[in-house]
Design a protein around this nucleic acid. Sequence first.
DNA 1: ATCTATTTTTAGATTTGTCTAAATTTAATT
DNA 2: AATTAAATTTAGACAAATCTAAAAATAGAT
Lengths: 218, 218
Amino acid sequence: MTRSEENYLKTIFHLGGGDAKSITTNAIAEQMETKPSSVTDMAKKLSEKGLVDYVRYQGVSLTDAGVKTALSIIRKHRLWEVFLVKKLDFTWDEVHEVAEQLEHIKSEKLIDKIDELLDFPKYDPHGDPIPTKDGKFQERDEKLLSEIPINSQGVCVGVKDSSVPFLKFLDKNKIALGNTIKVLDKEDFDNSLRIQMEGKEMRISHQIAANLYVKKNN
Amino acid sequence: MTRSEENYLKTIFHLGGGDAKSITTNAIAEQMETKPSSVTDMAKKLSEKGLVDYVRYQGVSLTDAGVKTALSIIRKHRLWEVFLVKKLDFTWDEVHEVAEQLEHIKSEKLIDKIDELLDFPKYDPHGDPIPTKDGKFQERDEKLLSEIPINSQGVCVGVKDSSVPFLKFLDKNKIALGNTIKVLDKEDFDNSLRIQMEGKEMRISHQIAANLYVKKNN
DNA sequence: ATCTATTTTTAGATTTGTCTAAATTTAATT
DNA sequence: AATTAAATTTAGACAAATCTAAAAATAGAT
């Protein structure tokens, strides 16, 4: 399994190709910042290997073997992210790039030991669930902050957008996983929210609220 | 800097090419289990980049820039080895293969944090010195166990041969770094040694003694 | 149902790192 | 100094992963 093959499988999974849904070569190319023709080539190769189902002009979806491989890479990625944050004091906007490299290290023992060192975490620093060794995947049932009603509150458990600018914004505004956030008011005009977090009141835009997952507790 | 380029620089360094000594393409090919013609190709490429001096039919040696790069890779390799042993309970015969992969991870912050996490170790699990961040390299001044006189003793600080079979042998016979070993007697016939280690007496072959470094303390 | 715009694939080229086989250079021997 | 053996390089090929440009298929609109 080459690094490139692994990256394709991971991307297809993230685009939803694990649920037998067909993902277009264009969508994959865009996500990976490559050309559709390159995706076609790789689709054939992965199909040969039994990791994807590929029908010309229709797109690709992951086979069971493909899902399994994708999950093992995602598992490694997310465990390394936890390691970087918890053991090496990386901030959550710094971890992705390094984890993209570490996820390709081939050693089952290594990742199992990292898992153990971290005490078998269930979520990565962005709140995304970490698949288990046997590929079980705990889906997130949380809601976006923008979707919970006024006067309800929840604990911040993850982000939808994990781009560096967004994470830096959260850092700067002291919005962190684990914080309790209460929605005080919504502004009809621009859908911005007035919230209370850790005792302080603040106003955040709809764009922010639509990218923050919370677990409701009232 | 590609992974392959890094591996060549590392190999050339280990073969002595850091001391302006010319290393033959054959020697490099043998060490890397590749063909001399492949080495020639890479020699040209690294020469273009100013990392080696290459004279046709004469061999290659590292430039200052080449030494610097080689040392940074060796530094990463050895720090990861320490990490695997100290933090993840790998045995010293298991670490090499994984460290060969980890040494190519590109993140200065990552390796500096690993260094810090390990409290800035000076030696790796085989007793090899770890270059500092600025490329300073503490040469080992220890002697081989086979070369110290009868009735002198020393602390085991490293191995010359770090192959898996040898390391497994040491593990099995409870010969570990830090043990104090005293040479009681030498057998003229086969150069085998009678030694005392951690209270117990045992006999070891010349081949073993010639691959164990000790720091004399009398 | 046909036409057109978009998507997707094919064909051929490129880069990196490798190989084999042939040619060349060096070194060793007489 | 000539010859031979060994080491080294060159030339040409190949596989992986990518690209561009042209061809083919699909989907949407009338």
